[in-house]
Amino acid sequence: MAGLRHVYWIGGAPGAGKSTIARRMAARYGWQHYATDDTMRAHAARTTPAMAPYLHAFLAMDMDERWVRRSPDVMLETFHWFRGEAFELIVEDLLALPPTPCVVDGLRLLPDLVSPLLGAPDQAVWLLPTPDFRHAAIEGRATLGESFIHRTSDPARAARNLAERDRMFTSRLREDTARLGLRAIEVDIPMPEEDLFRQVTSFFRL
């Protein structure tokens, strides 16, 4: 899409370091930074059940129904952001920004949705964390009291379900990027943040 040729996209699975790398890029190069995670609540409020049925079904569930009582494969197939619901609102927001370089990050950036918007293949990359890397990242967040699984009746089971869902999502991203000829970077322990930053910026030809 011509109106988005100034945009660089960093997609990937949860816990891969997408936002960290995007923030560093924005600071280093003086770019705009659009974090799709920060828009989830506002975008949900702009949808209707007809526009985003999976999102509204999810909103109607309690925490146990979301994370404990459903199997990981059902969680994967019905998770609204993994189905691309409200992606058009991301595009709408980006088109409203000044047409200067912008880095976008988030798990909502699905390869099949981003690919038609690229001016060139080297404007998008997906970060694929190993289970160990993601576990370390999530554990770090949990120590700060940010983990929603502790609001369920069975946090251990919720954590297992979520980890398996995200493992399957990572595999799907790996398959989709390969099918579309897009770049993906495997992120594992003990990859330093600086090395990942260097890989991403090198791929973006910065």
Rank of each mutant, 00 (worst) to 15 (best):
D122N: 15
W81F: 12
E139M: 14
T36D: 05
W81K: 01
A158R: 01
Q32T: 08
R183H: 09
P72T: 07
L107I: 15
A22G: 09
R134I: 05
F87V: 01
F133M: 08
Y34F: 15
A26M: 10
F169N: 04
A137Y: 09
V91I: 13
R167Q: 12
L162S: 08
D112Q: 14
R24N: 14
F203W: 15
C102F: 02
A22M: 10
M168I: 06
I21R: 01
G11S: 08
P116T: 08
L117A: 02
L144C: 07
D64R: 04
S153L: 06
T143L: 14
F148L: 12
E88K: 06
A96W: 05
R183S: 04
D62W: 08
M168C: 12
R179T: 13
A137S: 15
P14R: 04
R5Y: 12
T152P: 03
R141M: 12
W81E: 05
A50F: 09
A44C: 12
W67F: 15
T39Q: 15
R198E: 15
R172K: 12
F79Q: 09
E175W: 10
M75Q: 09
R24T: 09
M61T: 09
V91R: 05
W67K: 00
W31K: 03
F133D: 01
A163W: 03
R157H: 12
A52F: 01
A52T: 08
H135C: 08
R157K: 14
E193K: 13
G17S: 09
L4E: 00
F133P: 01
T170R: 08
A86D: 06
F148A: 11
T130D: 07
F148Q: 10
G17Y: 03
T78H: 06
H80F: 14
A26Y: 07
K18E: 09
R160E: 14
R70V: 05
I21W: 00
L127C: 08
D93S: 12
E92P: 03
R83P: 00
R157C: 07
Y34E: 04
W126A: 02
T177E: 04
F133Q: 05
T201A: 09
V104E: 00
V103L: 03
I138D: 06
L59W: 06
F197P: 02
L107G: 11
R151F: 13
V200Q: 03
E194S: 14
E92T: 11
P190K: 10
M63G: 02
V200S: 03
H43Y: 13
K18A: 04
T143Q: 15
T152R: 00
V103N: 00
T152S: 04
E164K: 13
S19K: 08
G11R: 00
V200T: 03
P131I: 07
P98N: 05
C102A: 09
A27F: 07
L4R: 03
M61L: 15
R41N: 13
H150N: 11
A86C: 12
D37E: 14
Q32F: 06
D195E: 15
R46T: 05
E65F: 01
I21K: 00
P99S: 06
W9H: 02
S71N: 11
S71Y: 06
C102S: 02
H43L: 10
Y54D: 04
L95G: 13
Y54E: 02
T143V: 13
A13N: 10
L76T: 02
M51N: 11
R172Q: 14
L97I: 08
T170E: 09
W81M: 14
G15C: 07
L110K: 04
V125Y: 02
R160Y: 08
D62C: 11
A52P: 01
A136W: 06
V200K: 02
